[in-house]
């Protein structure tokens, strides 16, 4: 969503690119190859992995955007704890629970991975745009580079891990 932070520059952008699959439209799945994909968020369950693999399959260049995609972010706080302990702490032994709890186990729920993985540990990532979120300027800088066929590099003031 930090793409929107590029503000009015988005008007410039729409003249130059076609948006295919994105949260801005209602298209949920790829039906063709695209040039560039941006992924945000790490992989915490099997669905995330599937979706990320779909992105990799359909994007010529895949970019990992933001701290969660790069190191798992806040969800990765569970990574040092272990999945079982984490689920039990939340659903069985939590201090706010009344009565016996249960770990949600609906068959439609995707299974959680043993930890939250950054995107580059699941698929090949071509470039990274760090930040939490990356600033509009950083996004714009990255986009400009890609549009001119260059590797995105960020100047000091735009490269932030936070």
């Amino acid at each position: 969503m930090s793409l929107l932070d590029i503000d009015e520059r988005i008007l410039e952008l729409v003249d130059l690119v076609d948006l295919d699959v994105s949260p801005f439209d209602d298209k949920k799945a790829f039906d063709r190859q695209v040039d560039v994909g941006f992924v945000e968020g790490g992989c915490s369950n099997e669905y995330n992995v599937k979706e990320l693999r779909e992105f990799r399959k359909h994007c010529r260049i895949l970019i990992s955007v933001g701290a969660c995609a790069i190191n798992g972010g806040v969800p990765a706080m569970r990574n040092t704890i272990g999945l079982r302990e984490c689920l039990e702490a939340v659903y069985l032994n939590g201090p706010s629970l009344e009565g016996a709890g249960m770990i949600p186990n609906d068959e439609d729920l995707p299974l959680l991975l043993d930890r939250v993985y950054p995107s580059h540990e699941i698929v090949k990532i071509d470039y990274f745009l760090p930040g939490c979120p990356p600033s509009g300027d950083a996004m714009w800088e990255g986009l400009k580079a890609l549009l001119t066929g260059k590797a995105p590099t960020l100047p000091y003031l735009l490269c932030k891990y936070e």
């Binding site: 992995v49 999945l83 079982r84 770990i103 186990n105 299974l111 959680l112 991975l113 043993d114 930890r115």
Partner: peptide, 12 residues
């Protein structure tokens, strides 16, 4: 491998 623990915890 990444799903092994969940399979054990959730039994599916």
């Amino acid at each position: 491998d990444a799903l092994r623990e969940a399979v054990a915890v959730q039994g599916r």
